[in-house]
Simulated assay, not measured.
Amino acid sequence: MKKKDCVEQIAECSYNRLAIMDAVSMLSGKWKIPVLCVLMQQGSLCFLDIVRHVPGISAKTLTKELREMESNQLVTRTVLNTRPVTVEYTLTDYGRTLEKAIFELLAWGLVHRKRLIGKDTLGEKSAHSYISEMQQDWPVNRGRRIAIK
């Protein structure tokens, strides 16, 4: 292998590694994926509804996570003209691009859990068929499918 080819491969690997680290960093932590999943499943929700749908999250932590997701353009924050003021959060179209990645993580996690525990909690269903059925039940996804390969 020529030295030039080797240098180009190293540069490409570094670039790819940085892109992966950006994605992992943006989704890291205990609460971002659960909050994203709730918004994927339910659509627009006010702050207190998110707190109710994500067991164990504090209001302070949710505020921090939502601010980070808003700065990363994953969610939009809309202040509604009501008394008292209501703030609603919705996934952006850009945030919806994470659906496939999150469902792939879910599929991998189900297979991994089965491998570690040695017990199939899904019965005859594959991880992908389970996810497809689950998606159909989500109000925001009725009539819409996300392709998982």
Rank of each mutant, 00 (worst) to 15 (best):
M1C: 06
M1H: 13
K2N: 14
K3G: 07
K4M: 04
C6R: 14
C6T: 13
V7M: 10
E8Q: 14
E8T: 08
E8C: 09
E12T: 14
E12I: 07
C13H: 13
S14C: 12
Y15W: 10
Y15L: 13
Y15I: 07
Y15R: 15
Y15T: 14
R17P: 02
M21H: 09
M21N: 07
A23Y: 11
M26Y: 08
L27N: 00
L27P: 02
L27W: 02
G29V: 00
K30R: 15
K30V: 09
W31D: 00
I33T: 05
I33G: 03
V35K: 03
V35H: 04
V38Q: 04
V38P: 01
V38M: 03
Q42T: 05
S44Y: 02
S44D: 09
L45F: 04
L45I: 03
C46I: 12
F47E: 02
L48S: 14
L48R: 15
L48M: 09
I50E: 00
V51M: 06
H53Q: 13
V54N: 03
A59K: 15
K60M: 03
T61L: 07
T61A: 12
T63I: 01
K64N: 08
K64W: 06
E65H: 06
E65G: 01
L66H: 04
R67Q: 15
Q73T: 13
Q73S: 13
L74S: 00
L74Y: 05
R77L: 04
L80M: 09
R83D: 05
R83T: 09
P84S: 08
E88P: 01
Y89T: 00
T90N: 09
T90S: 15
T90M: 06
T90E: 07
T92D: 05
T92W: 01
Y94V: 02
G95N: 09
F103H: 08
L105H: 11
A107G: 07
G109H: 15
L110P: 01
H112P: 01
R115Y: 13
R115H: 15
I117P: 03
D120E: 07
G123T: 00
G123E: 04
K125I: 06
S129P: 05
S129G: 04
Y130M: 06
Y130R: 12
I131S: 01
I131T: 01
W138M: 14
P139M: 12
P139I: 15
V140N: 08
R142K: 15
R142V: 13
R142E: 11
G143H: 13
R144A: 12
R144F: 13
R145F: 11
I146L: 12
I148D: 03
K149Y: 11
